[in-house]
Design a protein around this nucleic acid. Structure first.
Lengths: 240, 240
DNA sequence: GCTAACGCTTGACATAGATCAATGAATGCA
DNA sequence: TGCATTCATTGATCTATGTCAAGCGTTAGC
């Protein structure tokens, strides 16, 4: 049973998944040979708890629920999966069957990745193994950071932290620098910071008024005074 | 250069680290053979950017800053490390030198884990490799869940989500069940949920008033009506 | 057993940020 | 070019939750 080759768009989707973010173009192409696209109607079971783990998945669109089934009527939701996330990969690595069942809550699109072929692929490329571990560790650290940012920092501090993190600032601290790879819409930007669009706007115009940044039509932001931005951020952090 | 064997307490600390949470007692003991305790005075450099990665670390107490050094004066903070976290393990997996420098912001205690011996250990136990990948994936999912909980759910919903997640509910949804492995203090409980102690208390007494739970002196909470708690939670989630 | 210290609980108040609503700017389409 | 749609921005409220403060219960030490 062969599947049509993966479109360029879907290969890009693979590249953007956390798990594969470190793969180069060639590796993505090798990988995409044993992936296939699948359209899942609403309320459809993708896999059953304890079944052999033949595939793991990348969700392209829609919404998936992972749950434990105790009896015919009782279930316990374990997790909801949003677009961009992979799921069931932990099951594949553990070599056991699926520990949960999966059902689509809306019509959903997924890329199914053949578990067996993926593990063979990893065995053939031992370096990849280490890089996967490295990638996952890094992301873990990033997420831990995001969690403490969400609970410890206020709106302004979160915006500043984001700008400083993604700025191309490398030279002198006093030198002006810019953030060009911004989310293309305020809505996405705001959501990454866990803010509403409006508060994000207010914070930005506040910073603009104070001569700390310059905005260029949602595409680029110049940091006019990284040094002072940094001070502002630390001020909030040491408040504990 | 041999180090004294690791105390039981320190072995437990290893066990509780995310990275090793899946290790059994024997594996922890093997691991602890190439770990040693180190006391770091305040403002001391643990390792320099680009140096060979001989050790990675588990922070026991204190506070560590990871930063990029651009020139003698300019540095860029990458991350702060809190007790319980491991750091520099991504560097080890990637096989490169340290990508950042590390300095203690307070007097700190760490366990240093010999990178070379650890990778050898993994090569000798290929199963462990897969289990590490599995562990890291699972934690990644958990953290993603926590992030969406923090930004999407209100105080009551977060408390309910926590209670349901850690309850021993397995049978009928209507049957009363309990959460016994609670954080021993309200302060710790609240901090896990990103709330203040006071709001946590208020939410709990609110739920008590409505006959949904029963509290037993900060040690145990009975869920008198899991079904209705579940409804309450979902109500908030589908609001998007 | 008494007092001190600490942690829990509850109330009163302050505020950051969400929501609602209106306007302005930019982009796309006829 | 002009109209329509979407997105960004700003203002006016409202509310959830943090902060401050006081009382209560429990534990610990003498």
């Amino acid at each position: 049973m062969s599947h049509p080759p993966l479109s360029r768009t879907h290969q890009q989707a693979l590249q953007q998944a956390t798990l594969f973010s470190d793969f180069n173009t060639e590796e993505i192409q090798l990988l995409s040979r044993f992936c296939h696209y699948q359209l899942i109607p609403e309320q459809t079971c993708l896999f059953q708890q304890q079944a052999a783990c033949s595939y793991f998945y990348l969700l392209l669109s829609g919404f998936i629920e992972l749950y434990l089934q105790y009896s015919s009527q009782q279930k316990k939701t374990v997790e909801f999966i949003a677009p961009g996330q992979t799921f069931a990969e932990a099951a594949m690595f553990s070599g056991q069957g699926y520990p949960v069942s999966a059902v689509s809550l809306q019509e959903s699109e997924v890329l199914a990745i053949n578990s067996l072929k993926f593990t063979q692929f990893l065995k053939q490329h031992p370096q990849l193994n280490w890089r996967l571990l490295s990638t996952l560790s890094r992301h873990l650290h990033k997420l831990v950071g995001q969690i403490s940012a969400l609970s410890l920092l206020n709106a302004e501090q979160r915006v500043i932290a984001y700008l400083l993190e993604y700025s191309n600032e490398e030279e002198d601290e006093d030198v002006e620098c810019s953030v060009s790879h911004l989310p293309h819409r305020r809505a996405e930007f705001a959501s990454r910071l866990g803010l509403s669009v409006e508060t994000l706007c207010r914070v930005l115009s506040q910073l603009k008024k104070q001569g700390l940044i310059e905005t260029h039509q949602s595409k680029r932001i110049n940091l006019l005074n990284p040094q002072r931005l940094r001070e502002r951020l630390y001020m909030g952090m040491e408040a504990h």
